[in-house]
Each structure stands twice: as C-alpha cells, then as structure tokens.
Computed example of a mutant assay.
Amino acid sequence: MSENYKFFQHKECEFFPCHNVENKERFNCLFCYCALYFLEDCQGNYTYTNGIKDCSKCMIPHSEKGYDHIIGRIIKNNRDKK
C-alpha cells in the first residue's frame, strides 16, 4: 500500500518553506498548522512566550516521520481520555 497520503508540498505557497531547511524536497506541508498545538505534551520543540506556545523551532510536522508522530499522539491522547 502506498503512503503518499503522508506527504504533501505546496510549493506555490508564499511561505514555502516556512522554516529554514537544507532539503526543500523533503519538506512536508501536510500539517501546515500542527494538529498537536493544543496538547501540553506534544513532544515537540516549543517554548512559551508571554503565555503563548511558540512552535516555530519545531520541525516534527514537516519531517518525514511527522505524519506518524502526529497521528500516534492523537490516538494516544484520545485513548488516555477514556
């Protein structure tokens, strides 16, 4: 089975890529806005500035394994709530 659904690029986006990266061909735009933003334990590289979560240094959503990480954390979070 193909895993093409785990990767998307929007090269025409005026912000592409929105982070400085060495290899633009591997930059994943699928989670342009991270689905884990509201999780306190997202396991990403974030800081708080004036009480606001700053994820600008986090590359998890844009990485090759980003899809697996994000979906895994969503599943875990939903299971933990039961």
Results as ranks from 00 to 15, higher is better:
residue 1 M to L: 10
residue 2 S to G: 07
residue 2 S to H: 04
residue 3 E to L: 09
residue 4 N to Y: 04
residue 5 Y to E: 14
residue 6 K to Q: 12
residue 6 K to L: 03
residue 7 F to E: 00
residue 7 F to N: 01
residue 8 F to V: 13
residue 8 F to H: 13
residue 9 Q to C: 02
residue 9 Q to N: 07
residue 11 K to A: 02
residue 13 C to L: 09
residue 13 C to G: 03
residue 13 C to S: 13
residue 14 E to Y: 08
residue 14 E to Q: 09
residue 15 F to I: 05
residue 17 P to T: 11
residue 18 C to R: 14
residue 21 V to H: 03
residue 22 E to K: 15
residue 23 N to W: 03
residue 23 N to K: 10
residue 23 N to D: 15
residue 25 E to D: 15
residue 27 F to H: 03
residue 27 F to D: 00
residue 27 F to G: 00
residue 28 N to E: 07
residue 28 N to Q: 08
residue 30 L to G: 01
residue 33 Y to M: 08
residue 33 Y to A: 05
residue 33 Y to G: 02
residue 34 C to A: 08
residue 34 C to P: 04
residue 34 C to K: 08
residue 34 C to T: 12
residue 35 A to V: 08
residue 35 A to W: 01
residue 36 L to N: 02
residue 36 L to S: 01
residue 37 Y to C: 07
residue 38 F to W: 11
residue 38 F to P: 00
residue 39 L to G: 04
residue 39 L to D: 07
residue 39 L to W: 05
residue 40 E to K: 14
residue 40 E to G: 15
residue 43 Q to N: 12
residue 43 Q to T: 13
residue 44 G to I: 01
residue 45 N to F: 10
residue 46 Y to L: 02
residue 46 Y to I: 07
residue 46 Y to T: 07
residue 47 T to F: 06
residue 47 T to W: 03
residue 49 T to F: 15
residue 52 I to Q: 15
residue 52 I to W: 08
residue 52 I to P: 00
residue 54 D to Q: 06
residue 54 D to R: 05
residue 55 C to G: 05
residue 55 C to H: 03
residue 55 C to P: 04
residue 55 C to I: 07
residue 56 S to N: 13
residue 58 C to P: 01
residue 58 C to E: 00
residue 59 M to A: 08
residue 59 M to R: 08
residue 60 I to P: 00
residue 61 P to H: 04
residue 62 H to C: 11
residue 62 H to V: 05
residue 63 S to L: 05
residue 63 S to F: 08
residue 63 S to H: 09
residue 64 E to H: 08
residue 64 E to C: 07
residue 65 K to Q: 13
residue 66 G to F: 00
residue 66 G to E: 01
residue 67 Y to W: 14
residue 68 D to Q: 13
residue 68 D to R: 03
residue 68 D to L: 10
residue 69 H to F: 14
residue 69 H to E: 12
residue 73 R to I: 14
residue 74 I to K: 14
residue 74 I to H: 10
residue 74 I to G: 09
residue 75 I to S: 10
residue 75 I to F: 12
residue 76 K to N: 12
residue 76 K to A: 14
residue 78 N to S: 11
residue 79 R to M: 13
residue 80 D to W: 09
residue 80 D to R: 15
residue 82 K to W: 09
residue 82 K to A: 14
